Amino acid sequence: MLALLGLVVLGFIASIFGSVVGLGGGIIIVPTLILLGSRLTGSEINHEVAVGTSLAVLIVTALASTLSYAKKKRVDFRSGWLLFITSGPAAMLGSAITRYLQNGVFQLVFGIFMLLMAGLLIARDFLKPVSRKWPIERTFTDEDGSIHTYGYAILPALIIGFCVGLISGLFGIGGGSLFVPMMVLLFRFPPHVATATSMFVIFLSSILGSGVHAALGEIQLWIVLALVPGAWFGGKIGAIIAGKMTGKGLLWLLRLTLILLSIELITEGVTQL
């Protein structure tokens, strides 16, 4: 019973973080399942099962967030579908590759990636969007009637979508940790529109990525069912929080969490090599 409660709480906390900053929650779920799997479930969880299970949960998290953001008219569906053209297939490719990484290698690479993401989340507060004029210009009106103008080029958008999708399928993290900063800094998306649109793309990509993991038998269904209730409500609450506050305090907590988890993963990865 305590293990079940622990999984529900994990899904809830991870999805709040994910929804507020557009990460999808997997960046918390995957390392927690790898590092604390035996305590939460009674047996060790290998990295490919942790990734597959996380992607399956992300479908629910991202759907809950997307629906909440859509009601507030914050999702740029047109741009989201464009990014998904390459993000979806790349998520499937990344999901197929995951099993070929040895345990120590996966932990080490994932730990380094999380450390880089923590650095990116810190650096983005000090970086300014590029002033380049892109060939495709988008005008987006949100629920408050505010008009936002931003733009992009198709090829760079498709390349970013592919890279994010590949990382999403490989690590089970959704990809928002890269999507949001790139959309804000490179294409000048308003932060709240970037976060909402990122969750929409994560929802679509997670379906394809988790489908590959399911076909390979790399999803623990009972863990997914335990994580889903917390993930659903956490995703909705996170979207509400994102709409009412800047989320800076929560963002700094996330940065610190990522740094601590990355250090633990890197240490474990090195010891297993």
Results as ranks from 00 to 15, higher is better:
L2G: 04
A3N: 13
L4I: 12
L5V: 15
G6M: 05
L7M: 11
V8P: 01
V9T: 13
S15C: 09
G22Q: 04
G22A: 07
G24F: 07
I29D: 09
R39P: 00
N46P: 09
A50K: 05
V51G: 11
G52H: 04
G52M: 07
V57R: 02
V60C: 14
L67K: 05
A70S: 15
K73M: 04
R74N: 12
V75L: 11
F77W: 13
R78H: 12
R78N: 10
G80I: 03
G80W: 03
I85W: 03
M92R: 01
L93W: 04
I97W: 08
L101D: 06
Q102I: 07
V105F: 12
F106I: 05
L108Q: 01
L108H: 01
F110A: 05
F113T: 06
L115T: 08
L120K: 11
K133R: 14
E137N: 14
E137T: 15
D144P: 02
I147D: 10
H148A: 12
Y150E: 10
Y150N: 10
A157H: 06
A157E: 02
F162D: 01
C163W: 00
G165V: 02
L166R: 03
I167N: 00
S168Q: 04
F171D: 00
F171E: 01
G172E: 01
I173S: 09
I173M: 14
G175L: 04
G175Y: 06
S177D: 05
S177Q: 04
L178C: 03
F179A: 11
V180A: 13
M182G: 00
M183I: 05
V184L: 10
L186I: 14
F189Q: 03
A194T: 10
A196P: 09
A196S: 13
T197W: 06
T197C: 10
M199R: 04
L208D: 00
V212F: 04
H213A: 12
A215G: 05
L221I: 13
W222A: 11
W222I: 09
V224G: 03
F233I: 15
G235D: 07
G235H: 06
K236M: 12
I240Y: 10
A242I: 07
G243L: 03
K244D: 07
M245R: 10
G247C: 06
L250E: 08
L253F: 15
L256T: 15
T257A: 13
L260C: 15
E264P: 00
G269Q: 08
